[in-house]
Design a protein around this nucleic acid. Structure first.
Length: 157
DNA sequence: GCCAACGTTGGC
DNA sequence: GCCAACGTTGGC
């Protein structure tokens, strides 16, 4: 029963929220997304979808782990919290602007794939994250690329 | 710290 | 609706 699964890549800065944080928490809501394209990708996710956990803005950026989408359409609470850096004064409770998904920890890879590895393996049209200047924090990954990457990534720790 | 590549905002 | 100015992301 894998025919309807979509694959994604989700970035997080490890000094903000790393794969170790997710390992401890087991699940998390992917809050703080303030980009419409990224939000819309989350809206098109389905339960059971698989996402690669990517560490960005760090010494060795790259894929470090794997997650599964477990809940959809969660209103992002940080948009209503004036103390949060993600507070959005224009978002109304009746019409929340930002929503997200919950994801579950599946594992951290023994080796992972650095951005440098990914650039050697894939062309920009095969994997958006290797495209120069790509700033989108949630991007779709094609089934063929994703399945190949899973094989290359190998075992969890 | 620099800067390329965007996305957003707001004046007109 | 255009576009300049500004802000942010994120690799390097």
């Amino acid at each position: 029963m894998t025919e309807n699964i979509s694959y994604w890549l989700m970035k997080s800065e490890p000094n903000v929220y790393s794969i170790k944080n997710l390992e401890k928490e087991k699940t998390t809501i992917w809050d703080g997304i303030r980009n419409y394209q990224a939000r819309n990708f989350m809206r098109s996710m389905k339960i059971g979808d698989i996402a690669f956990f990517y560490h960005s803005n760090c010494k060795v950026p790259g894929i470090v782990g794997l997650m599964e989408v477990t809940k959809l359409n969660i209103v992002d609470p940080t948009q209503f919290d004036p103390k949060s850096k993600y507070f959005d004064s224009k978002s109304k409770k009746e019409f929340p602007r930002w929503d997200c998904v919950e994801v579950k920890y599946l594992g951290e890879y023994e080796k992972g794939l650095s951005l440098e590895d990914l650039k050697n393996l894939y062309k920009p049209n095969e994997l958006q994250v290797v495209r120069k200047g790509n700033r989108l924090s949630i991007i779709p990954v094609s089934i063929s690329t994703a399945e190949e990457m899973k094989i290359t990534l190998g075992k969890f720790k």
